[in-house]
């Protein structure tokens, strides 16, 4: 099969399009013929920095999978050859393959049937960001009537979080950096959209919550401005972040009695604990997609497997609007 492999960590020139043997399904695994994958920040961070959660070299990176089952390993009951599936199933330590290839042997517990209402490209955009956003909302206890502000509302995780929070009956606020992104966040269902370059946190907390603060603040930007999230939260509120590689002054959390949730969705893959939860979650996400409540935002530029270095460059430079999807097979 064709695969993009890396033999060292570094810039995008470490990718080498090469021929590799097709994988065979181990116990509990299925082999998926990939139709598409998508780029997530963890992909280019692993490519650039390597350990400790990167797969051993030489490696095939890539987490998100959408494709068709072609072979089924021992003990797999939920899938059969020909099933269209999606999942976050590769590209890190602890799992056997990556999605930057024509085939992957994937742990069946990490997969779900692809929603029929979505194309393969659309399905490939969803798994990692959907699991992340879902877990974030769960951890913070977002439900009907919760007021939640999502920072980075047009980003990879943020645009999914808006839709999932709406589906739970929450009142959804989103912050974005431009009018173009504001229009996207509104189209996805945000009740109130804030351009944070125009209106500061103290001002929108006063205007939209009467100064009380939001029940839940979800920083989906991947940035290090946690102070703004603390400022936006109400007393005893919840703050969720998806990155933590920075020093932060946590003292506002004390006086406000906040809870901070640091969401890292790769743990089931890295350590083989609770993988069933990911498959279960993607089945529920598929049901939302079938009813039109969940759809991905996809950058219009198209990429094929041989274009992967360029796709990584665009994602890493922050130039994409929505997820970057890489088409692996058309058909």
């Amino acid at each position: 099969m064709r695969a993009q492999i890396i033999e060292a960590f570094g810039e995008t020139d470490v990718f080498r399009l090469t021929s590799r043997p097709e994988p065979l399904p181990g116990p509990g695994e299925v082999v998926v013929a990939l139709a598409a994958t998508s780029i997530n920040p963890v992909d280019y961070k692993l490519r650039r920095y390597g350990p400790s959660i990167a797969p051993a070299l030489p490696a095939i990176l890539g987490c998100d999978v959408a494709g068709t089952v072609v072979a089924v390993g021992a003990g797999v009951a939920d899938f059969k050859a020909g099933d269209e599936v999606y999942g976050c199933a590769g590209g890190v330590a602890g799992v056997s393959g990556g999605s930057y290839a024509e085939f992957i042997a994937a742990d069946a517990r990490l997969l779900a049937h692809k929603p029929s209402s979505l194309t393969m490209r659309e399905a490939a955009a969803l798994p990692l960001v959907t699991i992340t956003a879902w877990e974030a909302l769960d951890r913070a206890g977002v439900g009907a009537g919760t007021s939640v502000v999502i920072h980075g509302g047009a980003g990879g995780v943020g645009h999914i979080a808006i839709q999932l929070a709406k589906a739970r009956g929450a009142t959804v606020f989103a912050t974005v950096s431009s009018d173009e992104k504001a229009a996207i966040a509104e189209r996805l269902g945000a009740d109130h959209v804030i351009n944070y370059r125009v209106e500061g946190v103290a001002d929108y907390v006063a205007r939209l919550t009467g100064g009380r603060g939001f029940d839940v603040v979800f920083d989906a930007t991947g940035g290090d401005d946690i102070a703004t999230s603390f400022a936006a939260a109400r007393l005893n509120g919840h703050v969720v972040t998806i990155v933590s590689q920075y020093d932060a002054d946590l003292s506002p959390m004390h006086t406000k009695g906040l809870s901070l949730h640091v969401v890292f969705m790769l743990i089931p893959m890295l350590h083989d604990i609770g993988r069933e939860a990911h498959g279960r979650l993607l089945r529920r996400a598929a049901a939302l997609a079938e009813t039109g409540k969940l759809r991905p935002l996809i950058d219009p530029e198209t990429f094929a497997l041989e274009d992967l270095p360029r796709a990584h460059q665009k994602a890493e430079a922050g130039r994409a609007l929505g997820k970057i999807v890489v088409t692996i097979a058309t058909g």
Binding site: R139, T241, V243, S244, Q245, Y246, D247, A248, L250, M253, S259, L260, H261, V262, V263, F264, M265, I267
Partner: peptide, 12 residues
């Protein structure tokens, strides 16, 4: 610094 918290999917 919360980097170790990220690796544990922790809540504070």
């Amino acid at each position: 610094n919360l980097i170790e918290a990220w690796g544990k999917n922790a809540a504070y």
